[in-house]
Computed example of a mutant assay.
Amino acid sequence: MSTGKRIGIVGIGAMGMAMARNLHRKGFPVAVRDIRSEAEQQARACGMQVCPSAASLARESALIIIVVVNAAQIDEVLFGIDGVVHGAAAGTTVMLCSTIAPQDTVSFAQRLAQHDIDTIDAPVSGGPARAEAGTMSMMLAAGDALLQRHEQVLDALGDKRFVISAAVGDGAKAKLVNNLLAGINLVAGAEALALGIKLGLEPGKLFDVICASSGASWIFQDRMARALKDDFSPRAFAHILTKDVTLATALADNAQYDTPLGDAALAAFRRTLESGFGALDDAAVIKTYLQEAQ
């Protein structure tokens, strides 16, 4: 860090808490804020400072990492009554790690600049386990000087850091392209595994075959391993990936680019939500296929 001030993290859900734990373990002073008291209690028990508002957190922090769900929540965190802009000093940096539309990222950066606050566009990937280990993938869009100012923190957060460009919004674009493919791969894997089950194959053996063969993908191995244990405790909520694929296909539409596989994956995720599985892990998409196969 460039100063002795704390790193502030707003949004300590699965990813945000894992990032906070990682930084705290590595000796960075961490302050947190969340609307859920149970999350704040957990952070306090780990020895982190808990702030009563985003504004008070901003007064304590040189770098503020935002890890909330969507653009509406970011808008409230940054510009609401007790938002970041009401506490942050000039020269503070906000790092946007949520998966949102690129135009929202650009808009937030422009509005923050009016308060002399810098923005790093920094969506992340890898899940809570990699976030806590400091091995996330990060898609960064910001100027070199700004990235260098926070190099120590970025190095602690992710060992796979990709500087997409200096243009804020390009990180968000890269993340949506990645998540479009992640969603397609997950739906395709769930569809194939459900077919095998429908055909009477032993699921565990078929899973092993696929993982060792040409049908393998990282997200298939990660998510279907949990599904086979009937473990749908959310590491990544089904409704979150549905949101991400929705944003990705909208981005493609705006670029006048057809994504038929993405559209099919989105339809499967929407059926998963309609079946009441939105609050489960996104591996629950296989529950939709198995339910429909009955």
Rank of each mutant, 00 (worst) to 15 (best):
D263Y: 15
T93M: 10
P29R: 00
K229L: 02
G27A: 05
A265N: 13
I35E: 04
N178L: 09
P102E: 09
R270I: 10
Q221R: 12
L140E: 02
D144T: 07
I12K: 00
A216Q: 09
E191T: 04
C46P: 00
S233N: 14
F277E: 04
H239I: 11
R235V: 07
K160S: 15
V84W: 08
F207L: 01
G169M: 09
A283P: 01
V245E: 15
D208N: 09
D281H: 09
F277R: 05
A113F: 06
V177L: 03
A101F: 03
L251R: 03
V168A: 13
F232H: 03
A18D: 08
Q49A: 12
L140F: 11
Q103T: 14
M95D: 01
C211F: 03
K198W: 00
A236F: 12
G91D: 08
F108G: 07
V285L: 01
V68C: 08
A90N: 08
H86V: 15
P52Y: 06
I74L: 12
Q221E: 13
D244R: 08
M19F: 07
G278L: 00
I81F: 14
G196Y: 01
I35W: 06
L23Y: 09
V10P: 02
F232Y: 15
I66F: 05
S214C: 09
D34S: 12
T249A: 00
L280S: 12
G171R: 08
F232P: 03
E202F: 10
I7G: 12
G215A: 06
L201R: 03
I65T: 12
V77K: 08
C51L: 11
A194H: 05
N185S: 12
D116W: 11
K205Q: 07
A133F: 14
G8W: 00
Q291N: 10
I64K: 04
G87Q: 02
A43R: 01
F269P: 05
P29E: 05
D222F: 11
Q294S: 06
F207W: 14
I12E: 02
A90H: 04
A62V: 00
M224L: 02
V124M: 13
S275T: 00
T99H: 10
Q291P: 01
R226Q: 03
V67D: 10
Q103W: 14
D230W: 07
A39S: 13
T92I: 00
H115M: 09
L23M: 03
D75I: 05
F237C: 11
V177E: 02
D75Q: 08
F28V: 14
M19H: 07
A31W: 01
S107K: 13
L280E: 15
A88W: 01
C51R: 03
I197N: 12
T92F: 09
A265K: 01
D116H: 11
S2K: 06
E202Q: 10
G126A: 13
